Each structure stands twice: as structure tokens, then as C-alpha cells.
Amino acid sequence: MKKEYWDVSNEQVVAKTGKTIEEWVEILSQYQAHNKKSNEVVAYLQSEFEVPRYWARTLTTRYLKQ
């Protein structure tokens, strides 16, 4: 997977999700995303925060690659 897929700007994330990258990192840390399968994390972001699938996948990948 190319880095460009998850290497997005904070401005892009805020525009599409309403939260900053830092806020998503905190949410994913509290959710213990590192201990879960990526599809489970994507589904969590979609169901709990109504994040569009593309952005849920991008945020999840970004978080897990860090």
C-alpha cells in the first residue's frame, strides 16, 4: 500500500470528518485500535462517528502504520 493513501493533511481530515488527526489518534488509542483487526476499527469509526468508509480506512491505516 502506498504511503500517499494515509499521508493526508490535518486540513483534509478536518474537512471530511470534523475532527483533527490528533483527536482521531486519541479516539483510536482509547479504543485500543492496535489490538484489533483493521476492519473492526473501520467499522467502529463508521458506526460510532459516522466517518465515511474511505476516511475510516485512511484514519485506521494511518494510525496502525504510525
Rank of each mutant, 00 (worst) to 15 (best):
M1Y: 06
M1N: 02
M1W: 03
M1G: 04
M1E: 06
K2P: 11
K3T: 10
K3P: 06
K3L: 09
E4L: 04
E4N: 03
Y5Q: 03
Y5P: 04
W6D: 00
W6K: 00
D7L: 08
V8D: 00
V8M: 01
V8Q: 05
S9F: 06
S9D: 08
S9R: 02
S9E: 03
N10T: 09
N10W: 01
N10S: 05
N10P: 02
E11Y: 05
E11Q: 11
Q12Y: 08
Q12E: 09
V13M: 01
V13H: 00
V13D: 00
V13I: 02
V14S: 02
K16L: 04
K16T: 05
K16V: 07
T17N: 03
T17K: 05
T17L: 06
T17V: 05
T17D: 09
G18K: 00
G18S: 01
G18D: 02
G18E: 00
K19T: 07
T20I: 09
T20A: 12
T20P: 07
I21T: 10
I21P: 07
I21Y: 03
I21F: 06
E22H: 12
E22M: 11
E22Q: 14
E22I: 11
E23R: 13
E23D: 08
E23Q: 11
W24I: 14
W24A: 11
V25D: 12
V25C: 13
E26Y: 12
E26W: 12
E26D: 14
S29Y: 14
Q30A: 15
Q30G: 15
Q30V: 15
Q30S: 15
Y31T: 07
Q32M: 04
Q32C: 04
Q32T: 07
A33E: 15
A33K: 14
H34L: 15
N35W: 13
K36A: 08
K36H: 12
K36G: 04
K37C: 10
K37L: 14
N39Q: 07
N39M: 10
E40K: 10
E40H: 11
V42A: 06
V42L: 06
V42C: 07
V42K: 02
V42H: 06
V42Q: 08
A43W: 03
A43P: 03
A43I: 01
A43K: 01
Y44W: 02
Y44E: 00
L45P: 05
L45M: 05
Q46T: 02
S47P: 06
E48H: 05
E48T: 03
E48P: 03
F49R: 08
F49W: 08
F49G: 06
F49P: 09
E50K: 10
E50N: 08
V51A: 00
V51G: 00
V51N: 01
V51H: 00
P52T: 09
R53I: 03
R53Q: 02
R53D: 01
Y54L: 01
W55M: 03
W55R: 04
W55P: 06
W55Q: 02
R57N: 10
R57S: 06
T58Y: 09
T58H: 09
T58A: 04
T58E: 07
L59T: 11
T60S: 14
T60K: 15
T61Q: 11
T61Y: 11
T61S: 10
T61L: 14
T61I: 14
T61F: 14
T61K: 13
R62N: 11
R62G: 11
Y63F: 12
L64R: 00
L64G: 02
L64T: 01
K65G: 07
K65Q: 09
K65A: 05
Q66P: 12
Q66N: 14
Q66W: 14
